[in-house]
């Protein structure tokens, strides 16, 4: 009998026979990962020092706020503070930045209380990992942006642009519809979110810089100067004087 097997083996050798393992059945299952089956202590302990360090860092105080800022209807102190921070942050990453805008949905606290500002508070204010882009915007696109509901209803906060007695100033200089302006804006808005679709095809720079990091840098900058952050003005789009 053994001899016969060996004959078969040599036949296989000549023919190049091989055993394949043909997949015949696929049984799928999707398991929710939750606490029902407990947690592995080795993994828990592996993450623990990082977890403790993050918690500690979240409690790190990075600056002071002189007054409580609020997200009220219309142009508001919290939105203008965020827009100011974005303009500041963008100016550290891009060669030229003239103005910054921030949409109401992009900052998530109703108020930022006066006093110490922690890293954790900034994460609560800006939980999204949105990038801060710099978009080259033609003046006429700025004009149409200003006449859009985002501006007229103050859904967007702005920094670097003021309307004074009906005249528009950008960076303190009169606005020209035929000039190009450099706008600091989230990747979300620049990609057309929040009906910002007039910007989708405009040239942009992306430094890989998060909006949240711009806020942190802005707050730290003031702290380094020894200043508590003051209440921003709220008459940028309707300046009387």
């Amino acid at each position: 009998m053994l001899k016969w097997y060996l004959v078969m083996l040599s036949v296989c050798g000549i023919m190049g026979c091989r055993t394949w393992h043909q997949p015949t059945r696929a049984a799928w299952q999707r398991s929710e990962v939750n606490n029902a089956s407990g947690k592995d202590s080795a993994l828990w302990h592996l993450v623990a020092p990082y977890r403790d360090s993050v918690s500690e860092s979240m409690e790190t105080v990075i600056g002071q706020l002189a007054v409580t800022l609020s997200k009220t209807a219309g142009e508001n102190t919290l939105g203008n503070f965020v827009a100011d921070a974005l303009l500041f942050g963008a100016s550290t990453r891009y060669e030229q930045v003239d103005l910054a805008v921030m949409n109401r949905g992009g900052y998530r606290l109703q108020e930022l209380p006066a006093g110490m500002i922690t890293v954790g508070k900034v994460y609560e204010l800006m939980p999204f990992d949105n990038l801060l882009f710099c978009v080259a915007v033609p003046g006429n696109t700025i004009s149409s942006m200003m006449s859009s509901p985002n501006f007229s209803q103050a859904e967007w906060s702005v920094s670097g642009l003021n309307i004074l007695h009906g005249s528009v100033l950008i960076g303190g200089k009169p606005f020209h519809a035929d000039s190009t302006y450099y706008l600091a804006i989230s990747d979300y808005l620049a990609e057309g979110g929040d009906n910002g679709n007039s910007m989708q095809n405009l040239p942009r720079q992306n430094a890989g810089y998060l909006q949240r990091d711009a806020l942190i840098d802005y707050i730290k900058f003031h702290a380094k100067q020894g200043n508590a952050i003051a209440e921003p003005d709220t008459n940028r789009l309707n300046k009387k004087q």
């Binding site: 091989r18 059945r25 799928w28 299952q29």
Partner: peptide, 11 residues
């Protein structure tokens, strides 16, 4: 999760 069963095929 996908559990895959295999059959031997001699070819």
């Amino acid at each position: 999760r996908i559990d895959i069963e295999f059959a031997d095929v001699h070819k």
